[in-house]
Design a protein around this nucleic acid. Sequence first.
DNA 1: CGTTGTGAATGCCTTCACAGCA
DNA 2: TGCTGTGAAGGCATTCACAACG
Lengths: 253, 253
Amino acid sequence: MAPEEIRSKPTELERETENGESSSAGTSAAGAAAQRHIPPASLARLPIYLRALTAMLSDGRERVSSEELAEAAGVNSPKLRKDLSYLGSYGTRGVGYDVLYLSGQISAALGLTLNWRVAIVGAGNLGRALAGYPGFGSRGFEVVALFDADPMVIGQEVGWLRISPVDSLEAVLAKTRANMAVLSVPAEVAQDLCDRLVESGITSILNFAPVVLQAPENVQIRKVDMATELQILAYHAQRAQASQIAARARLAR
Amino acid sequence: MAPEEIRSKPTELERETENGESSSAGTSAAGAAAQRHIPPASLARLPIYLRALTAMLSDGRERVSSEELAEAAGVNSPKLRKDLSYLGSYGTRGVGYDVLYLSGQISAALGLTLNWRVAIVGAGNLGRALAGYPGFGSRGFEVVALFDADPMVIGQEVGWLRISPVDSLEAVLAKTRANMAVLSVPAEVAQDLCDRLVESGITSILNFAPVVLQAPENVQIRKVDMATELQILAYHAQRAQASQIAARARLAR
DNA sequence: CGTTGTGAATGCCTTCACAGCA
DNA sequence: TGCTGTGAAGGCATTCACAACG
């Protein structure tokens, strides 16, 4: 359980600055993350950096500057450096960052050294796409269960998994010791299944259904919604179009 | 082409306040949106409000207060009101909002009254899931083409569409007059296809591939990445776990 | 009288410039 | 000398309280 910290550059590292509560003497942190809290906006970019670093690693790259990494991640370099500074000082001035070391540190900060056991609820095209997504396994995420309600698909195999009946949700979650869930079900049943997941002790849910889920606040819910994204694109496209028309009208005048 | 404005409460509406450039005399706006610019954070929430309103409409609901709508959308009511205020004053003090009217106004602001013709590139499980997604058609988005590179799937039918060879991308985009694209292809080929889309005049792209795409800045790109979302969940779950362990350690002391 | 619309205050995110260090 | 790490400044976003108004 307690994740080994990936090291390769043993410099100053120990930081005892707790996150506010329980200050005073060193609680010394049972191996795992006693890191201070990362601002949400920065947190959301860390996976991007990690992905870029991983790509560099497989290219055999050993060092990288903030400038290059920022470019690869599509941000500017001061932003990148500030983001990394929330984790610690893992670079070398005048040189740059060690690719392997930095990726290890980001992984640790994100908690990817732990074993995440993901249950996917809903085995339609989307659920199957997710189950077969290669990006999962490579990052400490293991899909341990796949559910559906349709008797026609229950029992089918997808990759290494057999689709379980959603009736047995609670039992299978317990047996597989899943600690995360992905909801890829129709909107109408999403809230009900969310409730059952929460009831079963799941506290991290990724929701693909186009509804706002209600859950206790100790449950972390994130949503992915392509309709929303398309609508935002439509807004910008419409504006671009409108200002083009306006420009043409100005010319014609 | 020029979208009809959905009306049902003809009050003060005309706003000529252009977005900065081209001020002076009334350019009078060719029917469409001459609205002022909406802050990104608010913009991202409008689709959620719209979805909640649509659900209320189909429940036969006619009026709603900011409090109720906020609840349904998972935000607090001052935030909702401020967001709506960027569009205009569409409520009635002491009463609330007309559900139909407000949803029409949000749709118009987002540009959903125009016809968006979407091409989906990549017909794997994800691409098929997207092609069959019911949320598209209902919001002014029409899937007009579906591409794949695999000779085994080219020619297959998905819903009303036949899968086209990606070799004919440019030709089919032109013929179908697509003005938006969704990329649901493997990461390795995403940038190449993005380039071809841009070359063909597409300026709005929704990217599901786990790479940062490079494109000219007049091209709007949005990304959806489940690996990123899961990693953010992992971060929070790990923290919750860590602070639980810390609490237990404090008790044991 | 109840609910919207909005200035003002607060807090968070980003940018910038440069100090600090290998 | 060159690149990282970070305080300080500026710009958005959110919150709040209340004025405006049907």
